[in-house]
Write a protein that binds this DNA or RNA. Structure first.
Length: 156
DNA sequence: GCCAACGTTGGC
DNA sequence: GCCAACGTTGGC
């Protein structure tokens, strides 16, 4: 099993939105970055766990999701009325992919970016590296375990 | 809302 | 294939 962090602006799509989806599951569409696409297309498997990160507005890890469907073409990429439209992507030659994620847990206490920066063991995280904008990032098992411990600890 | 950091595009 | 110009991300 692998571990990931996926960013979403909560005013666009939040962990509460995911929880309210049918089957609490949604396709993670709109990724238009090759590195992020490659992680989804080539490396994500069913059962992988996802740290659901809220970016820009109160940046924080808000909870957990799970990969329930591996990568499949993102139809918003050939929909001219979609904000994610890419004329170079077609149903025959899809350029962009999405995975399906299912809600697992909303943290009672979201782990703010400021707080994460104070945890020495987490300093190597890609998320905390300056200028790291990648919207889909691999997370090590060690980092994942630490984060879960922090999220579930009552001392917060 | 600003802007640093980064990714992409396209002229040459 | 370089790199300037442009567009986007996302913390602040």
């Amino acid at each position: 099993m692998k571990y990931w962090l996926m960013k979403s602006e909560p005013n666009v799509f939040s962990i509460d939105d995911l929880r309210q989806c049918p089957q609490q599951t949604e396709s993670w569409d709109g990724v238009r970055n090759y590195q992020a696409r490659n992680y989804m297309r080539d490396e994500m498997s069913r059962g992988d766990m996802v740290l659901f990160y809220h970016s820009r507005i109160s940046p924080s890890i808000a909870g957990l999701a799970e990969i329930v469907q591996t990568a499949h073409p993102d139809p918003t990429s050939w929909n001219p009325s979609s904000p994610y439209f890419d004329p170079k992507s077609t149903p025959d030659q899809p350029r962009w992919f999405m995975v399906d994620v299912r809600f697992r847990e909303k943290f009672k206490n979201p782990l703010s970016l400021d707080y994460l920066k104070t945890i020495p063991e987490l300093q190597p995280m890609m998320l905390l590296r300056k200028g790291s904008r990648l919207s889909i990032q691999p997370v090590t098992m060690e980092e994942y375990t630490i984060i879960l411990d922090l999220a579930h600890s009552s001392s917060l």
